[in-house]
C-alpha cells in the first residue's frame, strides 16, 4: 500500500538572482513499512527530498502526496498538524532540547498532541526500556553520550507512533559500534511496529541495512534498487 508519492517533483532554491536546482523531475513511491535509504553524495538532493517527504518544505513543481495530504494545497498549519500526527524526525546532531530531561524530550510530541500525562509517561517508559536507555529518564542531554542522545531522539520520534520516521544522516556522529547497534534497533522497530523508515545517508553501514536503496545524483534519480533477502 503506497504511503508517500512524489510525482515529477522539482525543487529549485534561489540564491539571490541565481537558481539552484536541488531536485529535478523526481518520481518515487514509498509503501507502508519500508526501510529505505536515500543515498548519494553531498548535494545530490537527499535532504531536500527528506524535507519534502517530512512536510517541512513544498516542491517548486510536481506533487508530493502523503496519505491524503497534497503538500501544494496544504496550509502551514495543516502541515504542522500533519507532521505532529504522522511524521517523526531523527537528526544527525540529535537536536534534543537541552533544558528538558531525556523523558521530557521524548514526551514532547505527545504533549503537543495533548496526550494525558500518565499515558505519556507509560509510553515513554516502555520505549526507553525497548531502546535500552531506561534509568536515564531524568538526565539532561548534556549528561548523555552521543549514542544515548540518539536513542532518546529515536524515542522522541517513535513516541507518537508516527507512520513515517525520517532520519537525516542518523549515524554520522556516532562510532561504528553504536551506529550498528542503533541501525539494528531501528530495523527491529521497523519489523515489529511496521513503521516506515526513510534515511538519507552516504554511510555504507546504513545502506547495507536497507531493503531499498534510492540513489540520487545531482537531484536526479540514478537508481532505485529493492534488495530481496
Amino acid at each position: 500500500m503506497s504511503l508517500i508519492k512524489l510525482k515529477n517533483v522539482s525543487k529549485i532554491y534561489r540564491l539571490g538572482s541565481q537558481k539552484i536546482p536541488a531536485l529535478t523531475d523526481l518520481s518515487l513511491v514509498f509503501d507502508v513499512g519500508e526501510f529505505v535509504v536515500l543515498a548519494g553524495p553531498s548535494g545530490s538532493g537527499k535532504t531536500t527530498a527528506l524535507n519534502l517527504i517530512g512536510c517541512l518544505d513544498r516542491p517548486t513543481a510536481g506533487q508530493v502526496i502523503i496519505g491524503d495530504l497534497d503538500l501544494q494545497s496544504a496550509s502551514s498549519r495543516q502541515l504542522a498538524d500533519f507532521r505532529l500526527q504522522h511524521i517523526g524526525f531523527i537528526f544527525q546532531s540529535y537536536n534534543l532540547i537541552p533544558v528538558l530531561t531525556a523523558a521530557e524530550n521524548a514526551e514532547f510530541t505527545l504533549m503537543l498532541q495533548k496526550v494525558p500525562k500518565q499515558i505519556r509517561r507509560q509510553r515513554v517508559s516502555k520505549l526507553f526500556a525497548e531502546l535500552g536507555i531506561d534509568g536515564l529518564e531524568g538526565r539532561r542531554p548534556a549528561d548523555l553520550s552521543g549514542g544515548q542522545q540518539q536513542r532518546v531522539a529515536i524515542a522522541r520520534a517513535m513516541a507518537a507512533e508516527p507512520h513515517v520516521i525520517l532520519a537525516d544522516e542518523p549515524t554520522a556522529n556516532l562510532d561504528s559500534h553504536t551506529a550498528e547497534e542503533l541501525l539494528e534497533l531501528m530495523r527491529r522497530l521497523n519489523r515489529e511496529k511496521g513503521t516506515t523508515f526513510i534515511f538519507s545517508s552516504h554511510d555504507d553501514r546504513v545502506i547495507s541495512q536497507a531493503r531499498r536503496v534510492i540513489r540520487l545524483e545531482d537531484g536526479h534519480l540514478a537508481a532505485d534498487i529493492t534488495i530481496t533477502a
Binding site: S76, A80, D81, R83, Q85, F89, N95, T109, R156
Partner: peptide
Amino acid sequence: TREFGILMAQGMRPWT
C-alpha cells in the same frame, strides 16, 4: 534558531 526548527519539525504550530 535551530531548536525552534526542531520544534516546528515535531509539529509545533507557529502560534505555539
